[in-house]
Write a protein that binds this DNA or RNA. Sequence first.
DNA 1: AAGCGCAAGGCATACGTATTCACGCGACCC
DNA 2: GGGTCGCGTGAATACGTATGCCTTGCGCTT
Lengths: 347, 347
Amino acid sequence: MTAKTRSRGTSDKPTSFDIAARAGVSQPTVSRALRGDPTVSAATRMRIEAIAHQLNYKVDKNASSLRRGQTMTLALLFFEDPLPDGTYINPFFLSMLGSILRTCAARGYDLLTSFQHLSADWHMDYEDSRKADGIILLGYGDYEVYKARLEALRAQGTHFVRWGAVDPDGLATTIGSDNIAGGRAAGEHLIARGRRRVAFIGQADDHYPEFRDRYHGMAQALRAAGLAVDPGLHADSLSVEQGGYDAMQRLLVRGIPFDALFAASDLIALGAMRALAEAGLRVPADVSVVGFDDIPAAATTQPSLTTVAQDYRLAGEVLVDTLLRRIADQPTQASLLLPRLVVRGSS
Amino acid sequence: MTAKTRSRGTSDKPTSFDIAARAGVSQPTVSRALRGDPTVSAATRMRIEAIAHQLNYKVDKNASSLRRGQTMTLALLFFEDPLPDGTYINPFFLSMLGSILRTCAARGYDLLTSFQHLSADWHMDYEDSRKADGIILLGYGDYEVYKARLEALRAQGTHFVRWGAVDPDGLATTIGSDNIAGGRAAGEHLIARGRRRVAFIGQADDHYPEFRDRYHGMAQALRAAGLAVDPGLHADSLSVEQGGYDAMQRLLVRGIPFDALFAASDLIALGAMRALAEAGLRVPADVSVVGFDDIPAAATTQPSLTTVAQDYRLAGEVLVDTLLRRIADQPTQASLLLPRLVVRGSS
DNA sequence: AAGCGCAAGGCATACGTATTCACGCGACCC
DNA sequence: GGGTCGCGTGAATACGTATGCCTTGCGCTT
């Protein structure tokens, strides 16, 4: 019994040495065979594969990652402003999670998932600690807060991509919807429905570039039609249902008349519609409502919600593929995905 | 320059040897210091920690996992029956995801997420390939289909826990709600509201033990009150919104009168309420509706949905902690969590 | 017939950490 | 004052895989 041939109990996981011993070859040959190295003859490879399968042998990913310097794993980091319910995750991002999982699987990668609040320390050491080859950042939140973190990540040479407003300073790591075009489509739709006074709920300042762009797109459409953009019809809100509800109540208290609402997200729209219903206003008879995202609930609420759909499916694919190109040191570019207006009952 | 002191470019990640060299100690001392081994003197440890922090040193988890034989990672596996939209994940499980993520983080574990259809091959080799120390299984679906897989997992000695109906054959790896008690609570509530003829939508057969138990709990309550359980008022449905919608339409076509609906899940309830509204029936005036799960949308739909809330927060904690006890070879037991009736506008 | 080239696979080693064992040294005991 | 103990640390090695380099054997060339 040589030093390399350890006796093994039945419960121990087999190693490439076990396969090698049973196949009458050396351990490196097993490694080469299973990785498809052409220097291993077909006969040998098939024999090794048969034995490996029979023993239920699986390559030890830790050893493999250690040796190869890559983990075949991506990390997904959700982040959000702190919210009352700590376990809350935006439904749109959850939809994207499915697409990302699918794409990762198709590319042979695993996905490590994490989530945390913007205010907390970012323990984004997945790549530093070599558990992942790159990071996908997903979240809405105060862009100013984490801009510095992004710079630090880039300075470290960490591989990452981000979903959000495409950054003006040219980070080629950002994938996002064309929020201006989406906002414009919403505005044009409301105008075509004969609406003249469009309210907006959502943050429209530079800390929330996505929402700001949606607002500006809508405002563009109004101005192009010769309509006024009344700052009095804008109410701030975080992208949560309760926020939309509260904002709509504040809007109603102001008493400025409006006949349409463009909400910065579907969650806001749902909350606002709840407040409208309580106030005795009918949707869409009294107020037309358009949201943004097309979360699953949008199709089934009463009335169903007209919204600007973001293509989460494509988004997930582009995020993963862009990240993989980054990891492979291939050139990447920021991507602007075109959102699509979905007309339903609320308008 | 010894063999152990490699020259390193600025971009290379530092290793414990680098820390050791700068601290004037050996590599093992660095390892001990950073793991809090008391045999390292406080002075030495602090010096090492300072240098490690300064160089942004992170332990290489691959090397660490390889050496220690554990990964400090858990795998989460969503599974469902194949659905039209491939990226769909049940919102209740998504809520649980947040809780699981939080608990994992609190216990120092990372979470590897995956999801797939029941019909596909289960590539559940995370533990075999040593990427995870254990597996959390999350999903509704045909229990008969994967029962054999669970047996195989157990035979392999894989560490796993499962959310679902507590298994009669005594797998001490199952965490679930007390669905019978939940169904009974729903039934008693409807009876207290003066309802006499309660319809049920959802699968109530042995392939879906959770839903079956909910049905039987409700039936118990009816019988205890001397009310009839009419099989004609039961319609099958997958746990998706559209399924509830379709099932309610079928129910209405039958023409058997009913004044209440107990839905096996909130998604079903939402779909059913949509069908009721389209049929001109008012909730709760004509039909009281009670769901199950308490997904986020339940609180905000119009009318808001009375439902049997599952404590996803506690569920996530119990799942993780039970799995960790399994991994540590400590005794575990199946847990039945008590659901809680949340009365809202639909009843 | 000797040399050459190529195919197939073995040998040695590196990846970075954690642990076992051994060692030096001061204190303490009798 | 010599043995003993324990504290703090270093030396050596194992974890399992992947790869650069070398060896072997065989067919073929000139």
